[in-house]
Design a protein around this nucleic acid. Structure first.
Lengths: 282, 282
DNA sequence: TTTACGTTTTTCATATTGTGAAAATGCTCT
DNA sequence: AGAGCATTTTCACAATATGAAAAACGTAAA
């Protein structure tokens, strides 16, 4: 498990991180900062709550929570609504968060491809990545149709009930798969949701064979979704592209037609970010 | 300027904030948290920097910055790139930031209108609000054309050189105008940028008369933009809608045609969010 | 391979400063 | 007017954040 130091191009090597650097960082976190960020995240999940409610639900002193909120308010990360007397996430949080997308060229590369995909298929096209065992939707181009499937960017969705999620899971090796899935019970959203590991494994094998994943009303009734993985330079699946729409337009008969476009877009994105068009052959 | 307490429906009144509540919050901010957030914001502006660089540029101890970053990393707000050995904004920041949009229904209400506006005009349609003396772009629907004006959501832009910015400035009263503009020198981006207050005032008067604002290559050469204000329930301008495109397609002759659509969309949004279709008559 | 250098972590002693309980303040509703 | 409730502030204490310096570590040069 020693560092292998044999990266092919090795643009400039790491310097200074100790030997086993998996996740041993726990003793030099700042406690008060971590507690403050807990408040920040809590507020983002449950917006529009009053101070008392927040402090009660978090089991913290109102005074402390108050000071955290006031401090964050000073930077616009949080906002106070003086009419409703409740706290919200502030605009500065949006500004900073949006800069995450700037980091990787993934979104920039993807947008023209998403648009093309949407125009070809007529359905909303989505881009997502994996984030801590969930699918994080980064960008989308909406269909012209009035009935739409809509995942606002920033939305998190469980892997096991999402097209992009399953497309990513299907490309993971055994260790990563176990790690990603651990501690995540398979919540059943509809009668079609895959709720046990054996069935999921079967489905993943099928996905690998086909090259694309189908979410057939597994998250929302009446909605179907076709997804394909995007590979980076190392041949690892780092993102997924999908189209999603109502079953009326995305029927079983449409799968053959749509999946081709989706896989094509995913391959184009893989190439655009300097990756392999297909999975790594081990 | 005292609180008027005569809101029409007054769903539930505020309780507990002391008398003069302008901005007297300064003594109960948490210093260490504020310093940590400074690091966070600094990183968002200058991504991909190494620890040493960050601490040097911020004039802080490397040890402190390190602990802040490790703490934020533990929550995914920040990420460490072990290859390049630099720090970035993390996905969790995007997740939290995106929830800012959920707070107000502004974006939800606007999207269908932006789409319609884009289809009518053929140009990219944008939605923006004012945030601390700058325009914050919240959402957009892109044109089909290959040459595009593009402000990614989350972008900040100066008020004086932006269509939406000027549309909002034009609706401010004297006090608010002064407050918004103070401490912001009029940076010149092109030869057409308005750089002095007198000229800006003239332009704002013209905008009020016309009902829409034009940014004629004032920020980017070759790009023109037509914007109109959106009013809330109190008749205050809280947002702006615009279309933007290259001067080749958005020429002087197109202004009459486009401005109608823009104003129409802005009025529709005003109504959709429960506001007045036009400015408050004082 | 060994040495030198630059960067990142950790250690450690110190006092800064974050903390919660409780009191004070301010608002709304009866 | 006054009770009741939620938000701020005060205050005394010790938890803990801090920076300097040392240690750990990887890279590049000798």
């Amino acid at each position: 498990m020693k560092s292998q130091n044999n990266g092919e191009t090795s643009p400039r090597r790491a310097r200074g991180r100790p030997r086993g650097w998996e996740d041993k960082t726990a003793q030099n976190t700042i406690k008060s900062l971590d507690r403050a960020m807990e408040v920040f995240e809590f507020l983002s999940e449950a917006q529009g709550k009053a101070l008392t409610v927040i402090s009660a639900e978090m089991g913290q002193s109102p005074a402390t929570v108050y000071r955290v909120l006031v401090t964050l308010e000073g930077r616009g990360l949080v906002e106070f609504d003086p009419v409703e007397q409740v706290w919200h996430i502030g605009p500065q949080a949006f500004v900073i968060g949006a800069r995450f997308l700037r980091r990787t060229s993934l979104v920039d590369c993807a947008r023209p491809l998403l648009r093309k995909l949407m125009e070809e298929t007529g359905e909303t096209a989505n881009l997502g990545i994996e984030k801590e065992g969930s699918v994080l939707f980064l960008s989308q181009v909406e269909t012209y149709a009035n009935i739409r499937a809509f995942f606002p960017p920033g939305t998190l969705s469980p892997m096991h009930a999402s097209g992009i999620g399953k497309a990513l899971l299907a490309e993971m090796d055994e260790a990563r798969l176990t790690r990603t899935l651990q501690g995540k019970p398979f919540e059943a959203f509809t009668e079609f949701t895959i709720t046990d590991l054996a069935a999921l494994r079967d489905n993943l094998a099928e996905i690998r064979r086909a090259g694309f994943a189908i979410d057939g009303e597994e998250k929302n009734l009446g909605m179907r979704c076709i997804a394909a993985p995007v590979f980076d330079v190392n041949g690892e699946a780092v993102a997924g592209i999908s189209v999603s729409g109502p079953t009326s337009r995305v029927g079983r008969d449409d799968i053959a037609r749509l999946s081709g476009s989706v896989m094509e877009a995913a391959q184009a994105l893989s190439l655009a970010i300097g990756g392999h068009a297909t999975r790594r052959r081990t």
